[in-house]
Amino acid sequence: MAKQRGLTGFRRENGAVGVRNHVAILPVDDLSNAAAECVAAHVPGTLALPHAFGRLQFGEDLELTFRTLIGIGTNPNVASVVVIGIEPNWTQRVVEGIAKSGKQVQGFSIEGFGDLKVVEQASRVAQRYLQAASEIQREPVDRSEILITTKDGESDTTTGLGSCRATAYLIDRWVDEGGTVVFGETSELTGGEHLIAERCVDDAVRSRFQEFYDGYIDMIESTGANLLGSQPTQGNIAGGLSTIEEKALGNIVKTGSKPVVGALGPAEAPSRQGLHFMDTSSAAAECVTLMAAGGGVVNLFPTGQGNVIGNPVQPVVKITANPKTAESMHDHIDVDCSPLLTAGQSLDEAGEGLIDLVERTINGRVTAAEALGHREFTLTKLYRSA
């Protein structure tokens, strides 16, 4: 076992620990994207988070949008937030939700003022926030304070055999040392969902997990659609995963062996330490965004055929055990554990190598996705707008 590296992070007003220090410019709706991006252009170093939705949504679909936006604003990797919306009421709801975390946040609505005036006012606030954030210092933190999430993508046969096993090694170690980890991809548990149910710590967690899983499958089956090509994807099939059951086993492998202590709704933050399931889509950008909204500060992303996903708030660590991908897409890969399958590397060696890279990422190392500018940020939409 490698010597544990000292970790540092940014401690927020509510005690949560982040590994990045963003000043976010957060639009409430698609109509406010232009103003948010304009503010970020005026104040380089701030982070605009444009997205496609936020208008004429209702019911649980609207609640999920609010939960996601507020969750992103309260993510520990965010130091402060400027919120911009077309209407004042929904803008203020997001501002008030973020303010409960104790961090600096101010909102601006465009109706009655127009983009130019709002951009000027919001840019002045963003400048002050950025200067204040620049003085926040890293401090020593414990592994137990770092919320890790995990999702895989463009999986193939090497994923379940290699990169997911290395990820599981880290997850088991992280949980053993008091840390918290979140996994999801509800549809990609199909055929192995009973394995997760058996690991739930009690009947309450098991019942909520089963409710999430059954509801997702019922929704899919109610359409009468054939998912082949979507689940598994064309890339999965090319990589040798011909059924959703084969794909699910790799997804489950990466969760490790620890008990599942919580079943979370999408964008819901865990309230206790340990391993949690989150009810999410298997689409990469949607899933990672929901996990970031739940408080995740580093995402582990095993990939086989090669996935380029990043996230603007939560750094994504890309892991592969496919030697071809490690060579042909090396600029996207943070951890090459293909020697686990090709050169006699032990699982301990592969897992310790991943832990080392994740610790460096926590301490400030820029991931491949960050370096290449991948900032995929996608809200999950449950149904049609009004």
Rank of each mutant, 00 (worst) to 15 (best):
V182C: 05
I244W: 00
N251P: 01
E87P: 04
R12W: 03
G351I: 01
L170G: 02
H194A: 02
R11I: 05
E286L: 12
L31Q: 11
A133G: 11
E268V: 15
L341P: 07
A99D: 08
A267P: 14
E211V: 06
G265H: 10
R55D: 05
N311T: 14
A133D: 07
F10Y: 08
P88G: 02
L275V: 11
A24L: 14
A36N: 03
R199Q: 00
T280C: 13
G112L: 14
S338T: 15
H42G: 00
R5H: 15
N14Y: 02
G229R: 11
P88A: 00
R365M: 08
E87F: 12
N236C: 04
G97A: 04
L62A: 09
T361Y: 06
H194D: 02
G306W: 15
L161E: 12
F10A: 00
E221L: 06
E268F: 11
A292R: 07
I333D: 10
A350Y: 02
E370A: 11
T320S: 03
L354K: 14
S282A: 15
S109A: 15
E188D: 05
A132I: 03
I220Q: 04
R360E: 13
I146M: 10
K151V: 13
M219E: 02
R5V: 13
S207W: 03
C287T: 11
T159Y: 02
G71Y: 03
V19F: 08
V83L: 01
G215K: 04
D156N: 06
S155W: 12
A343P: 02
I86W: 04
G73C: 04
A371F: 06
H374V: 13
L249C: 04
L340G: 13
C337S: 10
S144W: 12
Q127I: 08
I362E: 01
K100C: 05
E177Y: 13
T361D: 08
V141K: 08
L264Y: 05
R199I: 00
A371Y: 05
K324V: 10
A238T: 10
E268C: 12
V17E: 05
R384P: 14
A197L: 00
C287F: 06
D214Q: 10
K103F: 01
A197I: 00
A34G: 01
A371L: 13
K254F: 12
Q57P: 11
A16P: 06
E177C: 12
L379N: 13
